[in-house]
């Protein structure tokens, strides 16, 4: 398998008042294409920060991130947005759907952004695939947690990204919904050949990945 993502000596530090907080220390990581990786660790260990750095939502204090053979740490914010738009799908614990957009509009937005010819048609197919045919025109506030997360997944995978980043995707869900979401996610990456990095506290979910990374005090153990 060829390399999709490479993290070289990544450091992330935050300044809180006069204190320097080191969140990630000298992280080296390689993710191959079609690989599924679980990131586990205690709260505050730096898991979400790692995802944010990979997604280009934050910049590391030092080190390099190479995605699809391109160093994204040296890109401008707009260039990173372009990479994210085309190749990275992100799923959050709190779903992050746009509240005033319907389920269909939330999914179609990504497709429209990527200039798909029939965004609404594609979005409908995706939502239908996740059992949300009857929820096309519902606003997020009218959906259950599981349904909201399915919409969020549909939105993240809409443009068939090379990499899916999922931050505690089942953290806000009950067991039944958690199972459904993890099945959908892993089934999708298997079928479509995307890579997946999933941050989770759930050992069962973590076990579904081919590789498990444990982070402690900002370092990979």
């Amino acid at each position: 398998m060829t390399t999709l993502l490479k993290l070289k000596k990544i450091n992330l530090k935050y300044q809180t008042g006069k204190k320097n907080i080191s969140v990630l220390n000298n992280i080296d990581l390689i993710i191959k294409k079609k690989e599924t990786v679980s990131v586990v660790g205690e709260s505050g260990s730096g898991k979400t920060s790692l995802i944010m750095l990979i997604g280009g939502l934050e910049r590391p204090t030092s080190g390099k991130i190479i995605f699809k053979e391109k160093e994204i740490t040296s890109l401008t914010e707009d260039e990173i947005s372009e990479v994210r738009k085309k190749s990275i799908g992100i799923i959050f614990q709190s779903f992050y759907l746009i509240p005033n957009y319907t389920a269909l509009e939330n999914v179609a937005l990504t497709l429209e952004l990527n200039k798909f010819k029939n965004p609404k048609k594609e979005a409908k197919i995706l939502l239908d695939r996740f059992g949300l045919k009857h929820r096309f025109n519902n606003l997020p506030s009218q959906l259950s947690g599981g349904e909201q997360q399915r919409v969020a997944i549909a939105r993240a995978i809409a443009m068939k990204p090379d990499l899916i980043l999922a931050d505690e995707p089942t953290g806000n869900l009950d067991t039944e919904n958690s199972l459904m979401i993890s099945d959908i996610l892993f089934k999708y990456v298997k079928e479509e050949g995307s890579s997946l990095i999933i941050v989770t506290h759930d050992p069962k979910l973590a076990d579904k990945s081919k590789r498990k990374i444990n982070i402690k005090d900002g370092k990979i153990k």
Binding site: G55, S81, E82, R84, K85, I98, R155
Partner: peptide, 19 residues
């Protein structure tokens, strides 16, 4: 707050500042 949240989601989805 709503605007900030919306812009965050847009950012996650790949909207540029210019957009």
């Amino acid at each position: 707050k709503v605007k900030e949240y919306q812009n965050l989601v847009f950012k996650i989805l790949g909207f540029s500042k210019k957009d």
